[in-house]
Each structure stands twice: as structure tokens, then as C-alpha cells.
Design a protein around this nucleic acid. Structure first.
Lengths: 353, 353
DNA sequence: TTGTAAGCGTTATCAA
DNA sequence: TTGATAACGCTTACAA
């Protein structure tokens, strides 16, 4: 970042001079201070409008110790789920007069640390950490813990479901979502159920464990079979595919919709048909999961709510001085076409291939 | 935005006191000023580390007249295409030491104006306007035109393709993409070709016109039939669907992949099969277009490049003082399964429904 | 009702 | 090699 060329800018002094008043009067006039006469107020307003004056928030922030800026750190803006969260977060922030400065952590702890640091550099009034690998406790050492919310934490040190969650944590109720999935599958005759996911992410571990627990509740023995799929497997599902084809389960529960859709696509080249030969379940409820062929059975999580609530909690915390208690948002199972009633006969023209 | 509670913060003065030097010495030590002795430099460094000092960029910005912040205005962060652009933009900016502050215009001129204003309020060093409705010339009156790049402008006043584009404009070569689409369709025997899109967006108009022109070049007479699909039709394609079903074309070229995928999905409930009874073409090349069933024939646009180049051009402009010449990025037709060779026989088990 | 001046946290100029 | 001090643009006591 070499030194850029200087920039011209209309400042409050220019407005004041034009209106024939002092800077302080101009400042008060624009701030609708009651002590300023209507005459001068309109004069200042007019001058500001003519000159197209725009206040410098950084300078104001220096004085009032608040920048009106929120920092949003998420794994990847390009991801549909994170994009939704970011959009809702930004919208809610904007409604409350806050701007959002953001950074992508890209599943790298050091990047996350650097991002938190720049939020502090820019004196963000509050910070939201979405799908972060960083331990919430550590994050709280980089930014003021009273001005931090942690959304869908992916830290391995996060408390397991069931334990009481720390304040400022916002999550979806993945465990009960997974319960609903297993109930649905078992209720429709599925027994040999497997899970495909990325072993490194805590969210994934939680979903996997929840599935295992639910299966046990149904009296189905043994550990849940697991197909390991690296983080970006959805761009290249072939690696996962051949392992699945080697020992196909009756139903495959996937870490998220992207992976599920990619596997369904890859399966088309193989001998297995969905849902006739194998059931597929996703997680997240992205729009495209409802438009796939067959349409994907999945757990719909309230992504927009996540972003909206993260922003509003954060703004509340900024003003009250303390973050709200942990929030767990309910999820919903959307049964669609990628699973079927296993006990019923396979539909028309099956075993065609 | 009521007054928040004040915040504690380690400032340079604290570091200086701890190291037993003056603030100016501390500042220079941290900036690796050559005149500072190694002794004091390390002392200051140590003090800063112990205290976890993080500089206040706003204060520095006030002094050096640069904030290291870029403003990014796009239509909707939740959209896959814009998410990709935003991610690449943020990444490239970060590599160059810049942070990104962003806002969603949501296809509303007034929101766009307000967003540009807040970028100025926050003294962004440069601004990128992506898929904006605002006329680039007007945008240049709100922010310094020498620090503005306009990506995929959706302004109706934008120069038509063929004309020379103003500096700072970055676009994909949609016209030649559409040429390739029409070549592909006509070359495969399609004659009755229609277009589905949103009449209000300039990008849409440009794509539509390019299709019409290409058709004429192939000696196919008459205006291109158009199915009007409102901006968010992809969430509820039924309205478009019945019009299509009333007079189905041989092939339907869609404004973008989202619309194409939604229409393909809706078509599954109707009597028309893709590609047997109707060909479908998308635009953008989002990942899900490659995973649909059938996989979507589409024009792949370099979204990540768009974001990356926007950021690098902007940063270049900040340092050189003038924006680069207009850039038009090439696109690529990906022929997949949603179109076929019309002259060949319809594949196995057709007309089944 | 308005103006003067101090201060927010930095960097840069000028002395020492 | 280091230290006062001014300045960036703004808000806000304190004076008038």
C-alpha cells in the first residue's frame, strides 16, 4: 500500500465559511441542535447541500468513540449459505445505521486472527464471527468479548450440544434437525444409513454425532458409517463417489446441500439411481436444493435469521454493554424426492440401467 | 444509533509510556523508521506486543489522508454470482492491504445513492459499483470518478456494445456469449427460439438484443419472442411457466442460470421435457448449473476474475490517480445436456408421459 | 444563540 | 537519534 495521491474533499469548515458561521455552529446546525436558530440552521443546511458536504465518519468517530461499523468475519462469501447470512446481516445493520466491513477467513485460523485484528484497527463497534475455526474464547482476546457474537462456531473447543452455551453464541439446532432426518429415514424403512462429510469441521462432527445418537435411539446398533469428504469435495465428488459405490448404503446423509447435490450429480454417471437405489439427504436448505432433480430432502436452516439476529444482537450488545444469552434457532426437515418409502415397491421402470 | 457505551483501547501513548519514550518515537519505531536505534525499536516493539497494541486506522487516516478501505456496492450479496464477485474482490483487496466495506443496492437507485454516500462518509479510498442501476456518470458525481470502477453496469444509459466504453468500466462480453449460444442452437437445428428475462435490467436488454442480432445474422426473421420474467421469478417461476406452456418455443434462452434452473424445475411438473421437447440455455455458469439434471447448457462468465480485476484496477487507480481503460472479459459457452441436436431422433423412451 | 478552544489517536515537521 | 508540537476533521464543554 504505497502512498496514494491526496484527495480533495469538502469539509465542515468549507460549509461554515460559506454559511458565514463558525465550524461549531455548522456542526450543531447539521446535528439539529435545538439551540441553533432556524435562520442559521437553514443557511448551513443550504450551504452543505450546495457544496455536497459529506461528513467524515472517521473524524467523528475519533471524537465520539464510535464508528458505526460492524465487522463480519465468515468462511467464504462466495458460498450460498454464507452469502445469505452476510446479506441479512448487512441489511439489518444498515437499518440501524451501521455499516459492515467484512473479511473471509477461508478456514484458516491465522487469516481469522488477522481479520479480527483489522476489525480492531478499523475500530469496529462490534464483531460477528460466522463459521469460524477460532475458539470463541480466543476470539474474545482479540476483540472485546462484550462486543462479539459467534455464529455457527466451527471451533472444536465449542461446547457440545446439551451443555449450556456461552452468551453471544448463535446457532441452529442441528442436533434436532438430524433427529428429524433419522426419524424420517428409519420411519420409511431405511436401516443401512451412512454419513458423508468433512471430518475437520466441528459443525460436521456435531451433525455426525447427532445422527449416530439418533440412530442408537432407534435401536440401530454399531457406529454410523462415514464417508470422508474434504472441504471442497463438492467441486470434485469423484473421490468420495468411488468409496460410496464400493459399499453403497441405503441412505446417505450429507454434511450439506452442496455436497449432496454434487454427489447426486456424480451418481448419475454411476449405476445408482436416487431415490430408487439410494436415498440422499442434505443440510442447509439452499434454494437450489429445492430445484434439483430429484428435489433434495434436506434440513432447512434459517440462514437469513442467523444473519439478522447476529446483527441485531450485536447492536444491542454495543448499546447495553453486554451480549445476549446464547440463541438456538429451530430448523425444519423438508421431505422431498431424494428419499422414498423403502417399504413400498420401487416405482415404474426401475432397474432399467 | 443511540450513544454506545465507551470502549477501552490501548493507544500509542500507552506503548510509548511503557517503553519510556515519546509517542513520536514509538510511532517511528513501529513504522520501522531507519533513524530509530535498534535498542529503542525493540523496546517499543516489545511494549506494543505486551500491551497488544493495535493502531487506530481512522486516526492514521485522518493524518495521512487514506483509510485503506474500499467500498463495494452490489445488488445482492446473497446471489451466487455476486457472492463470487464479492469474495474475489475482498480477497484481492486483502492481498494488497485493503479492507472492504460493502452495501447491497437491492436494485434500488436510492439505496445505491445512500450506499455511495456512506462510502464517502467512511472515506473509502475507492469504490466499485457492481450491477448497479445508477448511471456511471451520476455515480461519478457522488464519489470521485478517478476512484470508481463500474462492473457489469445495469444502467440503461450505459453505452451500447460496440461503442467505446468509458474508462473504469469492467464487463463480460455478453454479446459474443449470446452469439455463441445462437450459433450453437441454430447449428443444431433450432429455429423457434425465445428469450426469458426481466425487461427492466439493462444487462437483460443487452443480452436480449444480442440474441436478436445473432438470429438475424443467421437469416432467421422476425423479432425474438420474449417471455417477461420479473426480477425474482426464479423463486416463483409459475407465472412465467404458463405463458411458456401456452406457446412453447423449441429453445428458451434464459437471462441467467437461476431463472433457467427454476424454469427447468417447473417444467418437470408440466408435459415438456428438457431437452427432448424444449431446449434450455442459461447464462453465468454458476456451479449448480453444472450439477442440475439435465446439466445446463450455459454461458460461463468469469465472475471471480471480475471481482479480482475490479479490486486491482481500483487499487491501481488510487495510486496512479486515473482509472484504467474499459475492460471486456471473454466468456465461454458450455454445451451440456439441456440442449440437443434437434435434427437427430429423440432419444430412447421419449413421449413416455 | 453563537464562537473559541480542547481533544479524539495518529503521523510529520521542526528543533534539539 | 529523539522529543515537542502541529495538524487531520469532527464534536463538545465552556465562554460570551
Amino acid at each position: 500500500m504505497t502512498r496514494p495521491v491526496p484527495r480533495d474533499r469538502v469539509i465542515l469548515g468549507d460549509v461554515a465559511r460559506r454559511a458565514g458561521v463558525s465550524v461549531s455552529t455548522a456542526s450543531r446546525a447539521l446535528a439539529s441542535d435545538g439551540r441553533i436558530s432556524l435562520r442559521t440552521r437553514t443557511a448551513v443546511r443550504a450551504a452543505a447541500a450546495e457544496l455536497r458536504y459529506v461528513p467524515n465518519i472517521a473524524a467523528r468517530g475519533l471524537r465520539v468513540q464510535a464508528t458505526g461499523t460492524l465487522g463480519l468475519l465468515l468462511a467464504d462469501l462466495g458460498d450460498p449459505v454464507h452469502g445469505q447470512i452476510a446479506a441479512a446481516f448487512e441489511h439489518e445493520a444498515g437499518e440501524n445505521g451501521y455499516r459492515v466491513i467484512f473479511a473471509s477467513g477461508l478456514n484458516d485460523r491465522d487469516r481469522e486472527r488477522r481479520a479480527l485484528r483489522t476489525f480492531v484497527e478499523h475500530a469496529a463497534d462490534g464483531v460477528a464471527l460466522v463459521s469460524g475455526l477460532l475458539d470463541p474464547a480466543e476470539a474474545g482476546t482479540w476483540v472485546a468479548p462484550g462486543r462479539l457474537v459467534v455464529v455457527q462456531s466451527d471451533s472444536r473447543r465449542s461446547p457440545r450440544p446439551g451443555r449450556t452455551l456461552a452468551p453471544g453464541i448463535i446457532q441452529t439446532d442441528d442436533a434436532s434437525g438430524m433427529d428429524a432426518v433419522i426419524d424420517h429415514l428409519v420411519g420409511n424403512g431405511y436401516r443401512d444409513i451412512a454419513y458423508a462429510g468433512d471430518e475437520t469441521r466441528a459443525t460436521d462432527v456435531a451433525r455426525h454425532e447427532a445422527a449416530e445418537l439418533a440412530l442408537r435411539r432407534h435401536g440401530i446398533a454399531g457406529p454410523l458409517r462415514r464417508f470422508s469428504a474434504p472441504d471442497h469435495a463438492w467441486h470434485d465428488p469423484e473421490v468420495v463417489l468411488w468409496r460410496i459405490l464400493a459399499e453403497p448404503p441405503e441412505a446417505l446423509v450429507c454434511y450439506d446441500d452442496k455436497l449432496a447435490l454434487a454427489i447426486m450429480d456424480a451418481l448419475r454417471g454411476a449405476a445408482l439411481r436416487v431415490p430408487d437405489d439410494i436415498g440422499i439427504v442434505g443440510f442447509d436448505g439452499i434454494p437450489f436444493a429445492a430445484m434439483s432433480n430429484p428435489r433434495l430432502t434436506t434440513v432447512v436452516t434459517p440462514t437469513a435469521d442467523l444473519g439478522r439476529i447476529a446483527a441485531s444482537s450485536l447492536i444491542g450488545a454495543i448499546h447495553t454493554g453486554h451480549v445476549p444469552d446464547a440463541i438456538v434457532l429451530p430448523v425444519r426437515l423438508a421431505v422431498r424426492e431424494s428419499t422414498r418409502d423403502l417399504r413400498a415397491a420401487v416405482p415404474r421402470d426401475a432397474h432399467r440401467g
